[in-house]
């Protein structure tokens, strides 16, 4: 294992984040505050409790997920797309690094950033609603696994994309709808049976459900299902990345 190589990529990527630390943190914090003002304070006061949880508190896990998913995908996709774009990827490809090591470096850094931002959103939320975290370790587990899974997905997008437009397109066309329809602001159980069934093919449902369970012991699906599905997504993403490196898809000519 080339640990120094992994560490170099990781430190390089984290350094890139630190250079723009202001915007990295400001934007998720501001949008969280906005969501709380609109959904928590303004509309939430008219909404009954959701499964016994006040609406303002109910949306906290969903809001964190919303930010974490978006950040993971955009960080990881940009992290690997940018060296492809500038041409500096030659160095990564010609270095004695296995695909696992490259992924650990890039995805590890993107996921770390997501976890940090998720934590910042959580702290911000604590100013608006009384927070109760029933299972802190599970909460951390879901936060980390979601960051990792979606950073892997972002990594795939960053390799697939052949222009900045495509880099933005997937998050806009797929990730955002999946998060909004994944139960960030509502329980998917509230949907008509047909749409509830449709929702179950949305991976984000399992993430948000599990994450919300760790807060309030209530989820749309069972904990076991959530954990299993996250495992399935992670393995699928790793499988795709393994295929990418074996065939050289868009990386090696």
């Amino acid at each position: 294992m080339n640990y120094r190589g992994i560490q170099s990529i990781y430190a390089f990527e984290m350094g890139r984040t630190l250079r723009t630390i202001g915007q990295s943190i400001a934007s998720p914090v501001i949008s969280t505050v906005l969501y709380f003002i609109v959904f928590g304070a303004a509309m939430g006061s008219r909404i009954q409790t959701m499964d016994g949880v006040p609406y303002g508190a109910f949306i906290v896990p969903g809001l964190i997920m919303l930010t974490v998913l978006g950040q993971s995908v955009s960080n990881a996709s940009f992290g690997i797309y940018f060296p492809r774009f500038t041409g500096t990827i030659y160095e990564i490809l010609s270095a004695p690094l296995s695909f696992i090591e490259i992924v650990l470096g890039y995805v590890g850094a993107a996921a770390s950033k997501s976890v940090i931002i998720g934590t910042i959103v959580l702290i911000t939320a604590a100013f608006f609603v009384p927070l109760h975290i029933a299972h802190p370790l599970w909460m951390i587990f879901f936060l980390v696994m979601t960051s990792v899974t979606f950073s892997l997905m972002g990594f795939i997008i960053g390799i697939w994309a052949d222009g900045f437009e495509k880099l933005q397109l997937i998050p806009l066309l797929i990730i955002t709808p999946l998060t909004f329809l994944g139960g960030s602001f509502y329980s998917v159980k509230m949907l008509p049976p047909f749409w509830y069934k449709v929702s179950l093919v949305n991976p984000v449902v399992y993430l948000i459900s599990g994450f919300r369970w760790s807060f309030y012991e209530q989820g749309d699906v069972s904990l076991v299902t959530s954990v299993t599905m996250i495992g399935v997504f992670t393995v699928a993403a790793l499988g795709i990345i393994a295929w990418i490196f074996r065939t050289g898809y868009r990386l090696r000519k």
């Binding site: 080339n2 640990y3 120094r4 190589g5 560490q7 170099s8 990529i9 430190a11 390089f12 160095e91 990564i92 270095a95 004695p96 690094l97």
Partner: peptide, 10 residues
């Protein structure tokens, strides 16, 4: 320094 690290050198 980054390049050196990529190749696993201390």
């Amino acid at each position: 320094s980054f390049s050196r690290g990529l190749f696993g050198k201390p």
